[in-house]
């Protein structure tokens, strides 16, 4: 069974299609895209990063994850992308269950999502086009597909005219939009944005979140970690607040920010 999500096609046209294989081989139906059940994470140095986290995120949701530094937001993200494994409880993402995953499943899981980093993570020696294309080369896309879809992704984030520029020739906001195009280019069903506005000016922050909102409107689930409470209030979406490793508020469950 496939997960449906927006696809980037030729000349910037957005169509809907199937992309990601569900390894469970059963209809997702109302199953959450992400589910945390009684998750605990303690690092080797004794830090309790997460305690008894229970959370469900459904297809098409836009979720802000907020909390102070050291609250456990990064660990929450790391468990989603399978950089860390829980000490207790279970994490399920796009049908991949933490307890049943092998090392080989990790790349497969990550191909179902796009990640946007706070520090952009663009390769300085590559052009904007090549930075975005890089994500497609990793999954073995043909040159023909790369040319088509990279252009579409750059048009979507409003950087169609800057394909030949180098990252250092762009503003912080533009660089983050390249990062967003890279996250989108493989048509993921889920976008994880780890403080994407952390290194851009306030005006650009709004543009970035607006872009994420637009991507979400087209069916992609978006999880955005942020410190910026004003931004969260202005966009009025589901908010999950983490403090000392526990979810202390979830607007979907009636919590308030």
């Amino acid at each position: 069974m496939a997960v449906h999500c927006p696809l980037i096609a030729q000349e910037g046209v957005i169509i809907t299609g199937s992309l990601t294989q569900n390894p469970l081989q059963q209809p997702l139906g109302e199953l959450p895209v992400i589910e945390f059940r009684g998750v605990y994470k303690t690092y080797q140095n004794g830090t309790h990063a997460l305690r008894d986290v229970n959370l469900k995120i459904y297809k098409g949701e836009f979720v802000f994850v907020v909390g102070a530094s050291g609250a456990g937001k990064s660990t929450f993200i790391k468990l989603i992308v399978r950089e860390e494994t829980p000490n207790a409880g279970a994490v399920s993402v796009n049908g991949f269950k933490s307890g049943a995953m092998t090392r080989r499943d990790v790349p497969r899981l990550r191909r179902t999502m796009g990640i946007v980093f706070q520090d952009f993570r663009l390769i300085p020696g590559m052009t904007v086009f090549d930075n975005v294309a890089f994500a497609m080369r990793v999954v073995g896309a043909s040159n023909f597909d790369i040319r088509k879809r990279v252009s579409s992704a750059l048009n979507l984030v409003g950087l169609g005219g800057k394909a030949r520029s180098r990252p250092n020739e762009l503003s912080g906001g533009e660089q983050q939009r390249v990062g967003l195009a890279r996250a989108l280019v493989n048509n993921p069903s889920l976008i994880i944005a780890d403080e994407p506005t952390g290194n851009v000016d306030p005006n650009m922050s709004y543009e970035i979140v607006e872009l994420l909102t637009e991507i979400n409107r087209r069916g992609t689930t978006v999880i955005m970690v942020t410190h910026e409470h004003q931004l969260v209030r202005d966009f009025n979406r589901r908010v999950v607040m983490i403090e000392s490793g526990s979810v202390i508020a979830d607007s979907a469950a009636g919590g308030v920010l």
Binding site: R111, I115, R121, I123, F134, V138
Partner: peptide, 16 residues
């Protein structure tokens, strides 16, 4: 390591 981290994030296999 920057490229490697991006490769891993977008789902590159270790052999890749």
């Amino acid at each position: 390591r920057l490229e490697i981290s991006i490769m891993k994030a977008v789902g590159a296999t270790n052999w890749f």
